[in-house]
Simulated scan of single mutants.
Amino acid sequence: MLHRPTWLLPVPQMAAEAALVQMSPSFDGEGVLSGNALISKLSVEIDVAVPIRKFRVRNLLSLAQGVVIASQWKEGEDMPLGTRGAQLAWTEFEVVNHRLAIRITRLV
């Protein structure tokens, strides 16, 4: 008889539901969503991507300092903000204290 590792065994529905952490979201005084203190301290890397259509390997090989690459995005058009392939919001670029920043314009 073939034995399956325990991590492959199905978990009963009630046990899976009991493992879920119940959080009641609330907002702190600064308008930030707070819940479980441990979860809220986890870091998440977010990305603002500028899609470039028709970019080829030859374009990649010809990259050099000072080269400008055109995109299909129009000036002032919102850019998608996401993490690990999931879109979270739409944003626009701003310069704050000589640094590039993003302003969230709407949540998804």
Rank of each mutant, 00 (worst) to 15 (best):
L2Q: 11
H3N: 07
R4N: 06
P5R: 05
P5W: 04
L8N: 08
L8W: 02
L9E: 12
L9Y: 01
V11E: 11
V11F: 05
Q13T: 08
A16V: 00
A16T: 01
E17K: 12
E17Q: 15
A19D: 05
A19Y: 00
L20I: 03
L20Y: 05
L20R: 14
V21R: 14
M23F: 01
S24K: 04
P25D: 00
S26K: 08
F27E: 12
F27M: 13
D28H: 09
E30T: 13
E30G: 09
V32F: 14
L33G: 07
L33Q: 10
S34R: 15
G35R: 06
N36I: 10
N36V: 09
A37G: 10
L38C: 04
L38E: 14
L38G: 05
I39A: 14
I39E: 02
S40R: 05
S40F: 01
S40D: 13
K41M: 10
L42Y: 02
L42D: 05
L42V: 12
L42G: 01
S43P: 00
V44S: 03
E45T: 11
I46Q: 02
D47C: 01
V48G: 01
V48D: 00
V48R: 00
V48P: 00
V48M: 01
A49F: 00
V50A: 08
I52M: 03
I52C: 06
I52H: 01
R53P: 02
K54C: 04
R56I: 06
V57P: 02
R58M: 07
R58T: 13
N59A: 11
N59K: 09
L61P: 06
L61W: 06
S62F: 09
S62K: 14
L63C: 10
L63R: 06
Q65C: 03
G66Y: 11
V67K: 15
V67R: 13
V67A: 05
V68D: 01
V68L: 04
V68F: 06
A70F: 04
S71P: 01
Q72F: 04
Q72R: 13
Q72M: 06
W73E: 07
W73Q: 12
E75F: 05
M79R: 03
P80G: 04
L81T: 02
G82F: 05
G82R: 04
G82E: 03
T83N: 09
R84D: 11
G85K: 07
A86C: 10
A86M: 12
Q87Y: 05
W90F: 13
T91A: 12
T91W: 00
E92R: 15
F93E: 04
F93I: 13
F93L: 15
V95M: 11
V95D: 09
V96Q: 11
V96L: 14
N97L: 10
H98G: 09
H98P: 00
H98M: 09
R99W: 05
R99M: 13
R99L: 10
A101F: 03
I102T: 06
R103E: 07
I104L: 13
T105G: 07
R106T: 05
R106N: 11
R106F: 04
L107E: 08
